[in-house]
Design a binder for these strands. Sequence first.
DNA 1: ATATTTGTTAATGTAAGGTTAAAAGTAAGA
DNA 2: TCTTACTTTTAACCTTACATTAACAAATAT
Lengths: 233, 233
Amino acid sequence: MEEQKKKILLVEDDPNFGTVLKDYLMMNDYDVVHAKNGMEGFEKFKKGDFDLCILDVMMPYKDGFTLAKEIREKNTDIPIVFLTAKAMKEDVLKGYKVGADDYLNKPFDSEVLLMKIKAIIQRKATETISDSKQFEFKIGGFDLNSKLRFLRYKGGDPIKLSPKENELLRLLALHENDLMPRELALTKIWRDDNYFTSRSMDVYIAKLRKYLKLDDKVEILNIHGEGFRLVVN
Amino acid sequence: MEEQKKKILLVEDDPNFGTVLKDYLMMNDYDVVHAKNGMEGFEKFKKGDFDLCILDVMMPYKDGFTLAKEIREKNTDIPIVFLTAKAMKEDVLKGYKVGADDYLNKPFDSEVLLMKIKAIIQRKATETISDSKQFEFKIGGFDLNSKLRFLRYKGGDPIKLSPKENELLRLLALHENDLMPRELALTKIWRDDNYFTSRSMDVYIAKLRKYLKLDDKVEILNIHGEGFRLVVN
DNA sequence: ATATTTGTTAATGTAAGGTTAAAAGTAAGA
DNA sequence: TCTTACTTTTAACCTTACATTAACAAATAT
């Protein structure tokens, strides 16, 4: 399974410093989106699904604190780190008041920043484990537990599913009896829609069909050119 | 309902500074225990049930880092803040490696310290509700006492567990029959998620499996790419 | 009919996990 | 201080799991 890079939103108006910092973070295996001001920062924040925000305090139009407040309204949990040139006590206090997780005075050491980022993201990672998406499905005589990745027929021995099998069956189950568009699975699971990923998906459909043979009331139908349909009679 | 004061362990060898800081914190509604050196700090830590530790780095006999490591062996969750006179980068990095939550260079502003304490304790308050106080488990025919670090099968001779064995088994037990994500163990126990810590974890899984062989109803299953599952049949 | 899409099986390459042993690091006793 | 016992990390090697690609057959659309 592919390692998922952590996503960082960096809002910094100084183009030189911002670019350098972005490159440095990307070199260290983070996925970085760089916004040049508070306004743009908020727009990008709404679109992306970030693990951490790094905000410059002093920016034209919308300063870091204001932006932080807006971000907090949308998301109470996401860690925020402020960058600031001046080491003003009032600023530090203000930062903590809007829920900062940390604070760095420029110029700061890049290794220290890296450590802080790591510490903060790890902290959050341990909290946010039990996010309750939908993990359990009944499909005819089958039970699908997509957190533990197994499929069981009528209380028999569980069939272990590979990550792709699991995700694909889960998507089909979410659309039970309805069309599950090819494109949806490809973009959600394979993150790319091309000839090869499409062939790959067909291979997985074949595998799922083999498993589902146990119950002849359950089948995966193809809708030519559209996608697949998990039907339960 | 009566509001419970948060308990802080302050380890600081400078008697003047230590006393002033202690008084300041107590004035701000914290319950503070002041230890004058690392040794005393560890003794007091074992006795009290603290919400936060503030450790001076430079102390005679036992420095703050060593003390932090000892504290971490007893408790992986408790927040630690370091105080230091010198703003050495190496020290900061070392601090984060032993799992510091924050870092303050003397002289620091007392209001800033207060804010940080507040932020850190609040952070922990949200995560540490259910699992941190659980130290005794029944796992099939086994009893795990993870405070005393031993595992006993059907009242037989206790098997002594090393700190890592113990923490890992405890995490698995907390998630009994459910997924215990690799990432969780690595970040909580090893404080880093990389190739080597991951391999190290596998070694410990092997050790635990050897212990658990005594009861063939208990086993640790792998979920490829996700983590492990302690199952009791 | 013939191009396109889908079905299925097999082959291949890579990543993850299992196991054991050696090396390195620590703690405590002699 | 040296020794010994013990914990943890690093390394090596092996096995298993998975995803992709290829190849070819079958179905479907134009």
